[in-house]
Simulated scan of single mutants.
Amino acid sequence: MTTDQKQLIKATVPVLKQSGLLLTTHFYQRVFSINPELKHTFNMGNQQNGRQPAALAMAVLAYAENIEDPSVLLSTLNRIGHKHTSLAVRPEHYDLIGRHLIASIGEVLGDAATPALLDAWTAAYGQLASLMIGIEAGLYAAQVTKPGGWTGWRPFVVRARIEESSEVTALHLYPVDEGLVADHQPGQYLSIRLFLPQLNLLQPRQYSITNEPNGLFYCISVKHETGETTSTNKLISNHLHAVVQEGDRLEVSVPVGVCPVAVNVPKSVPSTQRSGCPMHQVA
């Protein structure tokens, strides 16, 4: 990026502070209207509750504020990279998302989106995409070199359902191919992807791993959600809790997450809250 382009990016910080959420909300609406197949990749529950647009707005703002030295964001980008690899995000996704982002900037800012500003954001996004692709390439390479490791979605079968309480059910997940599974670190999580007939979509959601590494299976504990249950996140948990039985298959990603310390809490707490790791809650 040129010095002038960096100055243009920094000049948009006040706009992002005021209208960043408007921009990212428009962006996601644009993405899903033009490329509805991406609804199978994104957690639509985080679209429903507004967390995904809000998280992206904060990320774009942080990037603009640190455009002179994006390396200060490497810790955050690494955490995002873990989440992306759990969802099988690939380099080609960045090209598609980049086109939607630049178009959204033009559509939301209108006449203020000068050709020079759009060129600057195109260069800035390209720099960010290169950083993320590099981080994720390293993560993918590390995942496949582990004993029992893989990338993308691997079919698993539920071999045991254990009622931990009246509200929490533990699922023991074994690979369909009967191979080994990669060891996980404390605080790491899996992405589980399943088909929700209510939405006619494949949907992912993250769950902390609740068993010790054993090379054979993973355990997740799923809480039955009460109250308003039309949320996609609640639909996924309730489907796992009430519908999925022993012998059913699920698609599972390799363990990811960079939380160094596991927090010991009672089993009554749902697995998505056990590890103290916020990454499965962030876009």
Results as ranks from 00 to 15, higher is better:
R161N: 08
H40K: 13
Y174N: 10
E212P: 00
L240E: 12
T226I: 14
V158L: 03
F27N: 05
V244S: 07
L77Q: 11
N214H: 10
G98K: 13
T145Q: 14
G50I: 03
V158M: 05
L196F: 05
Q143P: 00
F217A: 15
G149H: 01
S86T: 15
R90H: 08
A11L: 07
E37L: 04
H84C: 01
Q281Y: 08
L77T: 03
I236T: 11
S275N: 08
I162W: 02
Q206C: 12
A142G: 14
P278F: 10
R161M: 05
Q47A: 05
E212S: 06
H93C: 10
V265E: 02
T114L: 07
L196R: 12
T229N: 05
C277D: 15
T3V: 14
Q143W: 00
K267C: 07
A182T: 06
G20R: 04
V282H: 07
R30S: 13
L202M: 11
E68S: 08
T3D: 14
I9P: 07
L180S: 09
W150D: 01
E228Q: 12
V168W: 01
V243A: 10
L16M: 14
L235N: 09
V168H: 01
L22Q: 15
G227I: 11
W150E: 02
L101K: 06
D95A: 12
V181A: 03
L202C: 01
E68Y: 07
L194E: 08
E251M: 08
P213R: 04
G179K: 03
I133H: 04
D183T: 11
K146E: 15
L8S: 07
K267I: 15
L216N: 11
L131Q: 12
L240D: 10
L38R: 07
L101G: 05
S208L: 03
A11T: 12
A113P: 13
V158K: 02
Q185M: 15
S271V: 02
L77W: 10
Q127V: 02
A57K: 05
P155G: 06
G98T: 13
A137M: 02
L73E: 04
T169E: 06
H241W: 02
F27I: 11
Q273G: 00
Q29S: 15
E251W: 10
I162P: 00
M58A: 14
